[in-house]
């Protein structure tokens, strides 16, 4: 995908209902143009993973996702032989007495190869989007393995040979900064930091995701979230929590916030008991700042 325009990326993100700012569009654009992986970091729930999904949809291509976790190794990321299947195959062939070398080549064929995400990504007919999610959760060992793949774009399987890619995938790496990534992997990537959105952006996101929400309620929710993030919480709620909350309140046909309602639904946005306790204590103050007037009961 050479020579696409920056405006097109912006429009593409917009069309797939992803509200972005120009910095995000620029990073996505350059990573596609320069064929370099894009490393996205930021707090939880600001739409890092969403970028990859939207890209795949907009480019009308596959999204291949590799979720990283501690202990992830190359058999889960690259390929594995389907041992059980191979065994059964051999058993069936036993009756026919075929010659050995033929048999051997047949069991190490594509049919018995379990393709894991990275191998899948480099054997597609059209450049897919490869999302390597939460790379910081994988071990350092996996990180260096990834470096090798990212630089050569080929995978060697001893029984078959080297598989080279014909269509380089677009790569998005995301991280939550649970562990510092190595300089080596940072050096190979473009970098993008996504922070919590400002009031206008968050409102636009809510309107896009929850179209039937009351206008006033939407504004109040965003105002409240903005103030809430100013509090020193253990786990600051992200945009996805805002959307959940907006959906919940909209489905109850609420028109505006009030203290009781917030107290009852606080569990949708806060996931830590200390946070909930602290927020409940300072709720009145928060509501004052947001400008929400409590109904007098």
């Amino acid at each position: 995908m050479k020579d696409i325009k920056l405006e097109r990326i912006q429009k593409m993100l917009q069309d797939e209902s992803y509200i972005s700012d120009s910095a995000i569009a620029m990073s996505v654009f350059l990573s596609m143009q320069l064929e370099k992986p894009l490393l996205i970091e930021g707090p939880a729930g600001v739409g890092k993973t969403e970028i990859a999904k939207v890209m795949a949809q907009a480019l009308d291509t596959n999204l291949i996702r590799l979720q990283c976790y501690e202990g992830l190794d190359s058999t889960h990321a690259l390929y594995e032989w389907n041992y059980q299947h191979q065994l059964l195959h051999l058993k069936i062939q036993e009756q026919k007495e075929k010659d050995v070398s033929k048999l051997e080549s047949s069991i190490f064929s594509d049919k018995f190869l379990l393709k894991r995400p990275i191998l899948q990504a480099i054997t597609q007919d059209k450049s897919p989007v490869l999302l390597i999610d939460e790379i910081d959760r994988a071990d350092e060992e996996f990180e260096s393995f990834l470096l090798e793949v990212l630089s050569d774009w080929q995978v060697t399987i001893p029984e078959i040979g080297t598989i080279e890619t014909t269509h380089k995938p677009y790569i998005i790496l995301t991280g939550n900064r649970t562990r510092e990534l190595s300089e080596a992997i940072r050096r190979r990537c473009l970098y993008l930091w996504i922070d919590y959105p400002d009031f206008e952006k968050e409102l636009a996101i809510i309107k896009m995701k929850v179209p039937d929400i009351d206008k006033k309620l939407g504004e109040q929710i965003c105002g409240f979230m903005k103030e809430l993030r100013e509090l020193k919480l253990e786990k600051t709620p992200g945009v996805s929590e805002t959307i959940d909350w907006a959906r919940a309140l909209a489905s109850m046909n609420m028109k505006h916030l009030d203290k009781q309602l917030i107290e009852d639904t606080l569990g949708v946005i806060l996931k830590d008991w200390q946070d909930i306790r602290n927020t409940q204590n300072s709720l009145s103050e928060l509501l004052d700042k947001t400008g929400v007037v409590s109904r007098i009961i």
């Binding site: 620029m26 990073s27 350059l30 990573s31 970091e41 940072r186 990537c189 970098y191 930091w193």
Partner: peptide, 12 residues
């Protein structure tokens, strides 16, 4: 600025 920012910075 944005282009240089995304290419030259490597962490938060």
């Amino acid at each position: 600025k944005q282009a240089l920012q995304t290419t030259l910075s490597k962490n938060h």
